[in-house]
Design a binder for these strands. Structure first.
Lengths: 325, 325
DNA sequence: ATATATATGTCAAGCGGTTGATATAAAAAC
DNA sequence: GTTTTTATATCAACCGCTTGACATATATAT
């Protein structure tokens, strides 16, 4: 790889001068600029970002920590994060934690050592204290940590309410909620709150089951859903806390010969693109994934640039009523 | 952030000594090591990877360029790439090209400037010449470029043959193949070859449609599938080149009142995890995604370490017969 | 004729590390 | 008692790039 020194020698000037051309600083004659750029082209020169970052104390890299990139929600989230980052000339260091506490910690320290300019945290197995020591611009997804760390989240509570109300309105007599794990202290937990508040007020029989902590192991869903219908065969409405789980519910219904939406009504959560391919088309609560990603990146970059940012960022959800309710 | 100098001062030795402890070089007394490590702990010191990489001319970063991280195939691929990279202490710089030629080129130059140690290319809008100038360890996914660049791919031809044979065996009289775009020169194209060779030999009426170049725009699938059944209402077997497209076929069949598998038999390709959630369960040709990822990372790291690697790496596919055939 | 602004360019230090060469002292070998 | 080995630690150069300070020359203003 050619270095700035090679370019300087080729043109017959000092490296300082080349650097000045590179960064457009000071007075440079057009002729000089031309000569330098020509030499760069010829040598196929590219400035070494490592060296630049080292000097500038700015890497233009954002760390993205999520539980599972192959999960559609996080896949879409990551895609939009990348898009926004790219627009702002930031690169993404991808960290897949698999909800493994050790890996998450390890990644945080790797990211710090790599001098990333900030971190978007979408995986949350850590305690608050471990976070406050990160000492780097931070944005969390779906989790409220300390006073100083901004977070972005969909309005899960509202989503829980909307979903539950829909099932009630459609005449369900016994409604099940398959919740994500409640021990993770995620804001997604408020879907559960929305469900409970609504269903209690309506006085309708209900049952809640919770998924494990093991992080998106799909085969687990099968068991949970099967158990649910075994233990509660009279359930005629299901509010699943993700579209993937909802799809599993549809599958189980088919296996049991229950017709959707006639015998059982089902509503999911997330509004992932792939949901459109499910038959019958899945009713769901749509999170504004792109907006969430956009906001996360913006909050992070604003922090990096020393701006004050808003702590709470709750974005609206939307009820998408399709064929399963 | 504390630097090596801070540590040195605190312990009362030179930075060289601290560096030696850090890298375990030369003779160090146990006592010294202890004192240095203590000071690091206290100062919350972490070596600056930028500086280390600069000196070592090795960043321990791998660039991963794919068309769309939110597409299930690439999501799963990326997940496994990350897993393997992590095991080998490499970090992943995520590049989502959206099959945009300009973005792809831009990312390649960003990656070079960032001094990545190698690139895994899963997005292919570039010509061969543009690649040979990359001058960095490289592995391509599904594309055969030059003699010197190793590639990893599933045995798409075999997959095409298996899928077609299954549809024939099940008694289909007119079979459609919805192919990925054939202009991209991907090895995935050989699914088409496998289909054509097999169906011609069997002498069965068939029709082939091709998706656009626009890169995983799902809404496009809807039109293509609708057109297919409009123009060829007598099609009773469909070999789709991805599970996502196959799902769209199922959806359209339902809309048209065609029963699957009675009226129309459908088989997909990829074997994505989410395929299991489709009802009826989708028959498909499963790519060994994890193995593909593992091989890609291994080939890349071997190259980085100066080893000779095998150019052609074709991994076996597997027919998964479920409910749609 | 002198001060001031404009233009062109270089020196050298520094970003945070690593390492070959080198110095010094004590222990072991001859 | 001298040489060799082992142990401990430092100096200074370097990785590739940036920038404040400084030097010099020309054009413009006073």
């Amino acid at each position: 790889m050619a270095t700035i020194k090679d370019v300087a020698e080729k043109v017959g000037v000092s490296v300082t001068t080349v650097s000045r051309v590179l960064n457009n600083r000071g007075y440079l004659s057009e002729d000089l600029k031309r000569r330098v750029h020509e030499a760069m082209k010829e040598l196929n020169y590219q400035p070494n970002e490592l060296a630049r970052s080292l000097f500038r104390k700015k890497s233009n890299i954002i760390g993205l920590i999520i539980p599972d990139i192959s999960h559609p929600f996080f896949g879409e989230f990551a895609k939009h994060v990348e898009e926004q980052a790219y627009k702002n000339r930031y690169k993404i260091l991808l960290c897949n934690s698999q909800l493994d506490n050790k890996k998450e910690l390890d990644y945080i320290s790797m990211l710090k050592a790599s001098q990333v300019d900030g971190i978007i945290m979408g995986s949350h197995t850590l305690d608050t204290e471990e976070f406050t020591s990160i000492n780097l611009p931070l944005v969390t997804l779906d989790r409220q940590l300390s006073d100083s760390i901004p977070y972005v989240s969909a309005d899960h509570y509202k989503g829980g309410v909307l979903a539950t109300k829909l099932l009630i309105r459609k005449g369900c007599r016994k409604i099940a909620h398959i919740s994500g794990n409640l021990k993770l202290h995620l804001l997604a937990k408020t879907r559960y709150d929305g469900f409970m508040d609504t269903i209690k007020k309506a006085g309708i029989p209900h049952v809640v089951v919770e998924t494990d902590l093991n992080g998106f192991k799909y085969h687990e869903y099968e068991q949970i859903v099967a158990d649910l219908f075994r233990d509660h065969p009279d359930v005629d409405g299901v509010f699943a806390s993700s579209d993937v789980i909802a799809a599993q519910v549809l599958k189980e219904c088919r296996r049991l010969g229950k017709k959707v939406p006639d015998d059982v009504k089902v509503i999911g959560f997330d509004g992932i693109k792939l949901g459109e391919f499910i038959t019958p088309e899945l009713s769901t609560i749509q999170q504004p994934i792109k907006e969430i990603a956009k906001t996360s990146v913006k909050l992070l970059i604003d922090q990096i640039n020393g701006k004050e940012v808003q702590r709470e960022n709750i974005l609206p959800v939307k009820l998408l009523e399709k064929e399963t309710t």
